[in-house]
Each structure stands twice: as structure tokens, then as C-alpha cells.
């Protein structure tokens, strides 16, 4: 047997998704509004489910309602409905949010992640 160590450090570019990715670092939910059908996608779809690739960026409130959640050794995750978005979004749940009821809010995270947690009411 031969053991190989392969440390890899990627420098990945978000390209057209940059507004969405940069928004996550600030806790802002940057979505895409389709110019053809008006559907709001979050995460943003470059090509809408209607087939159109024309659209504009829009900032949602970041509040979301958990529809289904799963927990266990792999962590805490959910399909959530963001206010103002059509369709659902796959998110990680902060540990403090796993037993809380909705609404939850998008958390600022660096590196960028889709994470929901409790609203900071302070």
C-alpha cells in the first residue's frame, strides 16, 4: 500500500452569482426576479424554470419559514420558504434554531453559507 497526501486549496470564482454570494457574507438574501414570468428565485437561477435568462437582482427580507427539517449526525438542515421567494431553499440551521419555531432569518457568514438562525432582537 502507498499513502498519498494531496492538500488542495482551490480559489473558486462565483462569476455571475457574485451578488448572491457576497450577500450571504452580509446576511442579505439577494434573489433573482425573472423578467419574463416574475418568478423570484432564491438561490438565484440564471435560467428561470420558465426558460428565460433575463432578470434582475432583488433583496429579500431574509426571513424564512421552515417547511421540512432534518437533524442527526450530519447536522441540521431544512427546506425553507423565504418571504418573497417562489419555491423553497435548502439551508443549514444554526444549532440554536433547530428547535425554534419560524420565522428564522438568514445569518451573515464568512465563508458564505446559506444558514438560518434566530433573529437578533437586541
Amino acid at each position: 500500500m502507498t499513502t498519498v497526501h494531496l492538500p488542495l486549496e482551490y480559489d473558486l470564482k462565483a462569476g455571475w452569482l457574485s451578488p448572491f454570494v457576497e450577500g450571504l457574507t452580509q446576511g442579505r438574501a439577494v434573489a433573482r426576479v425573472c423578467a419574463a414570468c416574475g418568478r423570484v428565485s432564491f438561490p438565484p437561477l440564471r435560467t428561470c424554470t420558465c426558460g428565460s435568462a433575463e432578470g434582475e437582482w432583488v433583496i429579500l427580507s431574509g426571513r424564512a419559514t421552515v417547511i421540512t427539517r432534518t437533524s442527526g449526525l450530519d447536522g441540521d438542515f431544512a427546506l425553507a420558504q423565504f418571504d418573497g421567494a417562489d419555491g423553497l431553499t435548502t439551508v443549514a440551521l444554526q444549532s440554536t434554531a433547530t428547535v425554534a419555531q419560524s420565522p428564522l432569518v438568514l445569518q451573515a457568514s464568512d465563508p458564505p453559507r446559506l444558514v438560518l438562525g434566530l433573529e437578533d432582537t437586541a
Binding site: 462565483a14 452569482l17 448572491f20 454570494v21 450571504l24 438561490p43 450530519d74 447536522g75 438542515f77 435548502t90 439551508v91 443549514a92 465563508p111 458564505p112 453559507r113 446559506l114 444558514v115
Partner: peptide, 9 residues
Amino acid sequence: WTDGMTGLT
């Protein structure tokens, strides 16, 4: 950039 970045399995 989306599902993958949540760390989900």
C-alpha cells in the same frame, strides 16, 4: 454555490 455551500450531505 448553493446547496453544496450549506455543508449538507
